[in-house]
């Protein structure tokens, strides 16, 4: 009886740990995060250009909600990458989109639009880089 109980408790511990490990292994959905920094693509780029170290501290690894105008779209191996405007011809905010967003991006492909993107900031390399991005809102430009 005692042995059965110990085995049961061990099994529960292993099960719970495995569940928590598998949950912790998943990347959080940026759209479900309440803890994000909202910033325009122009401001985000300007902050990195002004002081890369300070901006990296402020934005890297954080979930950002970035809004900007899409200036270029690339498709690499079924994954879209969007370039957002910065008012600076040297660089953009480059957003690597999740493959899950492909359908939502179809209206963007035919015509440039203003977009709101949620994703993780990786830092600055000529451009501000973001990955794991998802689409928030798409706004028509008049």
């Amino acid at each position: 009886m005692k042995k059965t109980l110990i085995a049961f408790v061990l099994l529960v511990i292993v099960g719970v740990s495995a569940y928590y490990y598998s949950e912790a292994s998943k990347h959080p959905d940026p759209l479900k995060s309440d803890d994000y920094i909202a910033v325009s693509s122009v401001q985000l780029y300007a902050d990195f250009e002004k002081d890369e170290v300070a901006a990296t501290k402020k934005y890297a690894d954080k979930t950002l909600k970035v809004d900007g105008i899409v200036t270029k779209i690339e498709l690499n191996e079924e994954r879209y990458t969007l370039y957002l405007n910065t008012n600076n011809e040297m660089g953009n905010v480059i957003c690597e989109m999740n493959v899950s967003e492909n359908e939502k991006l179809l209206p963007i492909i035919s015509q440039p639009k203003q977009i709101e993107i949620y994703g993780t900031c990786n830092g600055f390399l000529m451009d501000v880089q973001m990955n794991k991005c998802k689409v928030g809102k798409i706004i028509d430009i008049k």
Binding site: A24, S25, K26, H27, P28, A60, D61, E96, N122, G123, F124, L125, Q129, N131, K132
Partner: peptide, 10 residues
Amino acid sequence: LMKAFDFPNK
């Protein structure tokens, strides 16, 4: 950027 490496496992 090293932080731009995307791992399936967080």
